[in-house]
Design a protein around this nucleic acid. Sequence first.
DNA 1: GCCTAAATTTGAAAGTCTTGAAAATAAATT
DNA 2: AATTTATTTTCAAGACTTTCAAATTTAGGC
Lengths: 108, 108
Amino acid sequence: MLKHIKNTKLKKKDIYLCEECIEVFRAMADKTRQAIIFVFAAKKEICVNDIAENFTLSRPTISHHLNIMKRAKVLNTRKEGKEVYYSINKSYIKGLLTSMLDSIDSCC
Amino acid sequence: MLKHIKNTKLKKKDIYLCEECIEVFRAMADKTRQAIIFVFAAKKEICVNDIAENFTLSRPTISHHLNIMKRAKVLNTRKEGKEVYYSINKSYIKGLLTSMLDSIDSCC
DNA sequence: GCCTAAATTTGAAAGTCTTGAAAATAAATT
DNA sequence: AATTTATTTTCAAGACTTTCAAATTTAGGC
């Protein structure tokens, strides 16, 4: 991480926050994944099949996108029998957005 | 945009906001660009050369990254003679983060 | 234990992004 | 007008992402 920067005075804490943000930005920087997020506006908890029905994409593709957002902590999962239910990790996203707003005020 | 979604009730306004967010997320979802942003914590306005001096990357590469962030409205530019000065578009970023926080509360 | 259904993993093709070298542009200086 | 300096554009190579088909795993029903 930060491999291209020459001499930085950055603290480990800042670098970790930065990595966390990159993972979330990556998770959100895609048309399909934004579209998936819109599905959650209508229904709070959804399984892969239910999401796939709203899309022209294959199930493995939807599963892959959900996994990217899960790894970034943008989505939560809950297993119930054969189904895996996904939901938005509202508190995590809100916390991160709030930290970003604070950082902009304090350091820029 | 939203080409993979089957039947959506989304309004044009929401789709435009979504596209705007994707552009900003894309602009921020990169190690090098995040590292560039850290340079602005120390110095408010910087030209390409000054940024390039802090990095092991070539000038065209730095210029390319700055351009991506400029297109996403994350950075502002000001030309002074030969130099182009870049700075963070604080008000735009704050506005967008605030809109996102509002959306999370109202629709999720 | 075998079958079905839901989800994930694997592997490969197509597409996008990052990068630097070289060429081009833009502005100041001699 | 030629030169130098700062930045951008163009082009091509390499790395990473998206996507689907096929195979695999996981859980429930017969």
